[in-house]
Design a protein around this nucleic acid. Structure first.
Lengths: 387, 387
DNA sequence: ACACTTCCTTCCTACGGCGAACGAATTAAA
DNA sequence: TTTAATTCGTTCGCCGTAGGAAGGAAGTGT
């Protein structure tokens, strides 16, 4: 566990093919939750004889729990096996400007423990101390760590990236990985949200989607063919820089589009329309205002037009099929979403659904879970027969 | 070969793992071209004992050719094995408005035979007759067929898609696949070009790229993480529909952007600037004119600005790292490409290279070769250890 | 000519997958 | 209640493949 980086033997198979079967059983069980060995034979294609010892191992390791016999029409009843989500834990670490928040979740995305730590010393140290503490005696079940950082991760513009060390995702990830001995993924928070909605939210049923996140800036997360795509330098989804608005002027690190149409920019206009304190959700406030104030309605329509041009641009480039509105954009009401859908449909060659994201704050967590679980299974894509 | 769709046995391995080793040896040999068994042990991780019979088989099947002994510093000289590109043939079929052109190529992309057939009867029939004829006695080595069709393939807008039957890629592909018994891929010509440049052209050294093809319309091909990405409905890269130009008006099947900045549109302006016949290459003509005529120089700059906005849009969404100019855009001279590069760099958060595609007409062919070869290896992604 | 090095092959063993037979646990029928 | 029928799960044993070890092959250097 400490040294041997490259096991000099085991080139292709034998040990490997065993692992493949293990993983195929685990992932099947994770999906179905409660099943019998007989169902496993059908779903994985493995023979019963192969499954018997394998399932025995998995029960011993806590992945599966033997439940009572299930219903049977005729013949011996199936002995049901339940997947134990607690057998695999995942840590999701979110880097925020002055603190880090850390959550331990099981493979369902259910939070087992969480804590926020003020950022004092070295980030890597803090993470490597907090995660084991928080995991407690579940530490051996830890399968991966996902670290969410704001801004562009590897290279690219340094946008919203707080202070030192965070810009380079690699060093942090590698250090933590060495210290904790489990796979670590570092990514943009928006990318994690996209992964989360894809794994457990409004994108579960599709392989391609675009998540548009409107906050202080505007960013997009991209899922194509079932995977988050980051582009060559990790700057995919930097849609705030789109040259859609001749009037928009970007400045260091802020793109021309997001300078005019981000949540901040909208908040300023909303305050001008309805003087007072800046509302918590400028978009929701604007939608409410628009019902009575024609000027607000006009401005809302401007916003929707701007966002629709943004969406149309993305759709023309990658054809995601579905666009999820996240952050401030998720505060739109049904009528406004419909309006946006209409604007997009009119301008785009391919049919595209526009809807709200559903996970909200928990999207990052679910994304982290899905990253960490797939990192554990990395390198072993399915060789199974289609059922 | 005719019936058995799902082999009821063979769930995961045994037969499979043997095939994996075969393919790993073949693909290694394809890259290295001339190597010994000893090098194969290093590169594939397979033991010499495993390789001996495997290599024997491959020699018998014609994949490898035994050459004389290689140089040796000390000890027994290595018996060199040469990869035989002719062992795997590929057919590339290009559907054009009134004819189909068909090429047989080896796995280097070297054309072994080609022919153009006027389209008379059924397309599928024509293909299924032409390919075996053209392949001749090389037919058993045929590993795949790639069919390039203009326009959007599965669903999406029907753009440039000639007449009947072509719109739906699936039926044609499946029919041909059934008839010829080899994997068939049907795709957009621009996607194939992108795959070609990625496999054998200006994108060999990168995993992500965007190919911008300017012709009658404007389309882009997208390679992300080493694969062509088509989006949910196959309409990825329909960048002619980008809402970048308030003055652009699209009409049925033509996007607003390409309506103003495609090769056709440019040709009209060039004819206006220099009355006469429409030049073969309007862009090259424009570049030449711009050297002397200030109005032409101004218009060229407009075109470059427009294209740069297009590129910037794509880059913001997917961050390809490299953009290849194809079709009419490849007719720009060095100065114009530099200018374009400058415009892009100024507007984009991530560093992006802009350069010309290098394969020209042969891009589609190379793309077809790469598709067909990877279709043959499909479902068996690398499980090999990193070297 | 001899040792030495490197490459390739053959022999042999160990291990895992899966077919087949068998025991187990229930329902339906006699 | 006994018997048959049915479906599940397990144990046994054959087979095939992988890869270690040892040995032959074909060179180089002294």
């Amino acid at each position: 566990m400490t040294d041997v980086v490259t096991p000099p033997t085991s080139p292709v198979s034998r040990e490997r093919s065993k692992e493949i079967k293990r993983l195929s059983v685990i992932s099947t069980a994770r999906q179905v939750r409660l099943l019998s060995r007989a169902e496993l034979t059908e779903l994985t294609g493995l023979s019963p004889a192969t499954l018997t010892p394998l399932v025995r191992d998995l029960i011993a390791e806590g992945y599966l729990i033997e439940r009572g016999p299930g219903a049977s029409r005729a013949g011996r009843p199936r002995a049901m096996l339940e997947f134990n989500p607690r057998a695999e834990l995942v840590a999701a670490v979110s880097l925020e400007p002055s603190r880090i928040s850390c959550e331990i979740a099981d493979s369902d995305g259910a939070v087992v423990a969480h804590r926020a730590v003020r950022l004092t010393g070295d980030i890597v140290d803090t993470i490597c101390r907090s995660v084991p503490e928080l995991a407690g005696d579940g530490l051996p079940a830890l399968r991966g760590v996902a670290i969410a950082a704001p801004g562009v991760i590897s290279g690219g513009a340094v946008r919203l990236a707080p202070s030192v060390g965070l810009i380079e995702g690699r060093p942090i990830g590698e250090s933590v990985q060495r210290a904790l001995g489990v796979p670590v993924v570092v990514d943009n928070d928006v990318n994690l949200m996209a992964a989360g909605e894809h794994a457990a939210g409004a994108g579960m049923d599709v392989a391609d989607l675009l998540l548009l996140h409107v906050a202080d800036g505007i960013g997009a997360g991209l899922v194509l063919d079932g995977q988050v795509r980051r582009g060559a330098r990790g700057a995919a989804g930097e849609v705030g820089f789109l040259p859609l608005d001749p009037a928009g002027r970007g400045h260091d690190g802020i793109g021309p589009f997001e300078a005019r149409w981000s949540e901040n920019a909208i908040a300023e206009r909303v305050v001008a329309l309805a003087p007072g304190r800046r509302p918590d959700s400028p978009v929701r406030a604007l939608v409410a205002l628009a019902a009575t104030d024609p000027r607000a309605a006009g401005y809302l329509d401007e916003v929707l037009h701007a966002w629709s041009r943004l969406i149309v641009s993305c759709v023309c480039v990658i054809d995601p099929g579905r666009v999820l509105l996240s952050g401030a954009a998720a505060d739109l009401d049904d009528a406004a979403v419909d309006r946006l859908q209409g604007l997009v449909t009119a301008a785009v060659p391919s049919t595209t659904e526009v809807r709200r994201a559903v996970l909200g704050d928990r999207a990052v967590l679910h994304g982290a879970v899905s990253y960490a679980l797939s990192a554990a299974a990395a390198g072993l894509p399915t060789l199974l027969p289609a059922p």
